[in-house]
Design a protein around this nucleic acid. Structure first.
Length: 364
DNA sequence: AATCCGGGGCC
DNA sequence: GGCCCAGGATT
């Protein structure tokens, strides 16, 4: 792959890239220092998530959980709440699990050893390489989407970057490039280049500090790379959710299971509905089975459309009232009667935040 | 190796 | 509506 590169090429490439990075890098909160904990948190937040989205979450998270110890000792509910709206919620549950391990086994110090660090929950090849190189200056490759895009063009690598195996091709090419440079600067420079210049659509080759080294550019193929297979379209699912209100102004909420979609997030009672049958009747049955108590004034009040990557929820929201103040909760699962104010302490997926907002009169 | 797991912003 | 994003765990 790199047979065309002699050591002088490598040096010139490194110098031009690092020179560019030193003047063009964005000022980001996790670049203030090389605190391994801060770098780690930022890298987990940045998984499949854009920098602009992460910044406010990162600042808030650091305010609430400034150190390994703080996060290790925090209540899970509070941690999940700090992640509310970011998505991929297992990231933060895995992060807290791993941080507890660091707190207990390593005296609160992030191990400066790729093998040990990689063994922690939620730390894969990318995150390990990123934290080890950025925080500890270890010459580890950190191959993410940016790196694969930049190097697929640079070296004209035509493997499908959607395949799991392809990452290894890039990891194999990188060690040469990591010689005799500060690993933290080099890895971040490649990612910054991918984010700012060597972008997915219409790459800014004319502004690129290493355009003269780019094999794809020489062959006029920069628009064709990287190769990535297309994904299937999302499937729609009809749902009904119930805003069930008791006479004393509390609402029934449910916590989702420990595994699967939106694990451990809170929500209004809801279920998938069949299109062949009357949805209002299905809601009636659902309430009866779960509450076992008569509900009155059942009526549709809102329609929520929510798209995930691979799934679309079309939720019709119903309001209903229980007759008695002496309300019970269903046998199975975790349920809670709360006022809307109390519910604010818990983490809800965006789809159900839309319902909450409507109920608070912030709707539309 | 393929699938699951969120949400937002861009075209 | 499709695509992409500083990916990892599970099957």
């Amino acid at each position: 792959m790199t047979e065309k590169w002699n050591s002088t090429d490598i040096e010139n490439f490194q110098e031009q890239l690092l020179e560019w990075y030193s003047h063009n890098q964005r000022i980001l909160p996790w670049r203030e220092n090389q605190d391994p904990y801060r770098i780690w948190v930022s890298e987990v937040m940045l998984q499949q998530t854009k920098v602009d989205t992460v910044i406010p979450y990162f600042n808030n998270f650091m305010e609430k959980f400034p150190s390994i110890k703080d996060l290790a000792e925090a209540e899970e509910e509070k941690v999940l709440k700090a992640w509310e709206g970011l998505g991929y919620y297992s990231r933060v549950r895995n992060l807290q699990h791993a941080v507890k391990e660091v707190h207990e086994k390593y005296e609160g110090r992030v191990p400066a050893d790729p093998k040990l660090f990689s063994s922690l929950k939620g730390v894969g090849p990318y995150t390990s390489g990123a934290v080890m190189s950025i925080a500890y200056e270890l010459p580890e490759p950190a191959v993410d989407g940016n790196v694969m895009r930049v190097f697929s063009r640079l070296l004209c690598i035509e493997e499908d970057i959607g395949k799991a195996k392809t990452r290894k091709t890039f990891e194999a090419a990188l060690p040469t490039f990591l010689e005799n440079v500060p690993p933290s600067q080099f890895n971040q420079a490649v990612m910054e280049l991918g984010a700012m210049v060597c972008t997915p659509r219409s790459p800014g080759c004319l502004l690129c500090p290493v355009q003269e080294f780019c094999e794809a550019r020489m062959q006029g193929k920069e628009q064709m790379l990287p190769i990535k297979e297309k994904k299937k379209a999302a499937k729609a699912r009809e749902m009904a959710a119930v805003v069930l209100k008791s006479p004393d102004g509390r609402f029934l909420f449910h916590q989702r299971e420990e595994k699967g979609l939106l694990a451990k997030m809170w929500e209004f009672p809801n279920a998938g509905t069949k299109q062949e049958e009357s949805q209002a009747e299905q809601v009636q049955v659902f309430i009866h089975e779960h509450i076992g108590e008569k509900a009155v004034n059942i009526e549709p009040v809102q329609y929520v459309e929510h798209a995930f990557s691979h799934l679309i929820w079309n939720i019709t929201v119903y309001e209903a009232e229980t007759v008695s103040t002496d309300v019970s909760t269903p046998q199975e699962g975790v349920w809670k009667w709360m006022t809307l104010e109390e519910a604010e302490r818990y983490a809800f997926p965006v789809s159900h935040q839309k319902i909450l907002h409507q109920q608070k009169g912030e709707g539309k």
